[in-house]
């Protein structure tokens, strides 16, 4: 339990630092900055008590917000995908109940990981750009930006999941 907590805090810190010091300065094609920090939300272990998860996601988003002066935009988006993570996992994996202890995202097939990550990332990015522009007049720009940025976030997330997590048959 403590080892898991330590690992999670370490991941939290590293992802926030990577996001604010490196990824927020990429400006690929002038405006694309991938938001890799939501990898934390994808990889957070499934728990029956979800209150901690929601709070941690909120703090994660808020830390990014403090660094990028965006009020509570990232916090809102992070909490939203944290809340809808379990229903979307159940829906995509086509299981009414998941085995919380045995489930690990990186043990699923590549296609399923891709679908799960894509859905959550798209929701997250749409909320971020939607709240940033907050007008129907710029709907085209919002969709354009969320789609293009999502593509890069998804590629980075999938690569990180494949490269930096160990495949295990069981969690013990």
């Amino acid at each position: 339990m403590t080892r898991d907590t330590l690992l999670l805090s370490f991941r939290f810190l590293i992802l926030v630092l990577i996001q604010v010091l490196i990824l927020n300065n990429i400006h690929f094609l002038d405006y694309i900055n991938p938001n890799l920090y939501i990898l934390f939300i994808f990889l957070y272990p499934l728990e029956k008590e979800r209150a901690n998860f929601l709070w941690v996601s909120f703090l994660l988003g808020l830390s990014i917000d403090i660094f990028s002066n965006s009020g509570g935009i990232n916090a809102a988006a992070a909490v939203c995908i944290a809340y809808f993570r379990l229903p979307i996992f159940k829906l995509v994996l086509n299981k009414p109940e998941l085995d919380f202890k045995l489930f690990r995202l990186n043990n699923e097939s590549f296609l399923r990981i891709l679908v799960l990550v894509s859905i959550l990332t798209s929701i997250h990015h749409f909320i971020i750009f939607g709240m940033e522009y907050f007008s129907l007049k710029s709907l085209k720009l919002i969709i354009y930006k969320s789609v293009s940025t999502s593509i890069f976030t998804i590629i980075l997330s999938i690569l990180s999941i494949l490269l930096f997590t160990k495949k295990k048959t069981s969690n013990f």
Binding site: A51, L54, S68, G72, I73, C80
Partner: peptide
Amino acid sequence: LLFLVLEIFAFLLTVQSNSYHKSQFINS
């Protein structure tokens, strides 16, 4: 309910940060 409370709080922070002269709380 927790989800709603957190979302409303985040939304209020965003609105507050958008009003010039009031973004004293969340800034870099």
